[in-house]
Each structure stands twice: as C-alpha cells, then as structure tokens.
C-alpha cells in the first residue's frame, strides 16, 4: 500500500516494527515501531509514559515527512 500512495504523489511515512519488510516492499520513509501487536504503544508502561512514547514516534514520523530523502531512509532517531 505504501508504494501505491507514494506512486499517487503523496509523501508517506511507514511506521512499522519489521523494518526489513518495509525495506523489501519499497517504503521510502520508514520509522521503526515498538512491537507487532502494539507498534505505537507499550503495555508495560504507565498510561502517561505510554502516550509520551507514542507521541515521540508520531513526531518522528512527522519529521520524516518534512525531510527530503533520495532513497529508502530509516528514521531511527
């Protein structure tokens, strides 16, 4: 899906746990997530800390969307 959205002309960031699959399917902007059943959360944390964690991933995704890339890029930080 990510590739078709990109092909349609809309910049897209893929937030996912299994970065290698994302690289294989051809996403250009990739933000690594936490775990497959909870990519943007961590049930082990308190509700507040978990939301803070989620916010940091979303902010990284937004940063990726604001960044010029010339090929597949994984935004680790």
């Amino acid at each position: 899906m990510v590739k078709e959205i990109e092909r349609a002309g809309i910049p897209v960031v893929h937030v996912c746990t299994v970065v290698p699959i994302s690289l294989t399917v051809g996403a250009n902007r990739i933000v690594p997530a936490i775990a497959i059943p909870h990519p943007l959360g961590n049930p082990a944390l308190s509700k507040e800390d978990e939301k803070e964690l989620r916010r940091s991933i979303v902010l990284r995704a937004l940063k990726a969307l604001e960044t010029e890339v010339d090929g597949q890029t994984v935004f680790e930080k």
Binding site: I10, P11, V13, I36, L40, V58
Partner: peptide
C-alpha cells in the same frame, strides 16, 4: 480519494 480531499501526507501504520 486522498488527493481529491487535499491530503498532503500520509502516516501508514503496520503491525
């Protein structure tokens, strides 16, 4: 549809 609706960027999440 996203283009028609004026969406400028997409966040796609996967599990």
């Amino acid at each position: 549809e996203l283009i028609k609706d004026g969406v400028q960027a997409v966040i796609l999440t996967s599990t």
